[in-house]
């Protein structure tokens, strides 16, 4: 059975201008309990790779530059 990809608006948003993942920072990726954040191969910035969020906020609270914003997932907003 072929697989299709599924469009979803992700709750965690990263401001590329503030994100310092390209300087080696991985704090948000490290702390996420659901392990849904990754560093992009293309931009070298953090982004939400998997829409499996508990909107708990360690990524936002622990980011050293205030680049991460957690929004309420659309389905329960």
């Amino acid at each position: 059975m072929p697989l299709a990809s599924f469009q979803t608006s992700v709750p965690v948003v990263v401001d590329d201008a503030k994100c310092i993942a390209d300087k080696g920072c991985t704090v948000c990726v490290d702390v996420c309990p659901l392990d849904v954040l990754r560093i992009s191969d293309m931009t070298n910035k953090a982004y939400m790779a998997y829409d499996e969020c508990w909107y708990c906020m360690p990524c936002e609270a622990d980011c050293p530059t205030g680049a991460v914003t957690v929004n309420i997932p659309y389905l329960l907003r």
């Binding site: 309990p33 659901l34 499996e52 969020c53 508990w54 909107y55 708990c56 997932p73 389905l75 329960l76």
Partner: peptide
């Protein structure tokens, strides 16, 4: 499954 339908929107930490 939470009533919102969001699989990770559980009462407990979804991990």
């Amino acid at each position: 499954l939470p009533t919102s339908g969001y699989m990770f929107g559980t009462y407990e930490n979804a991990a």
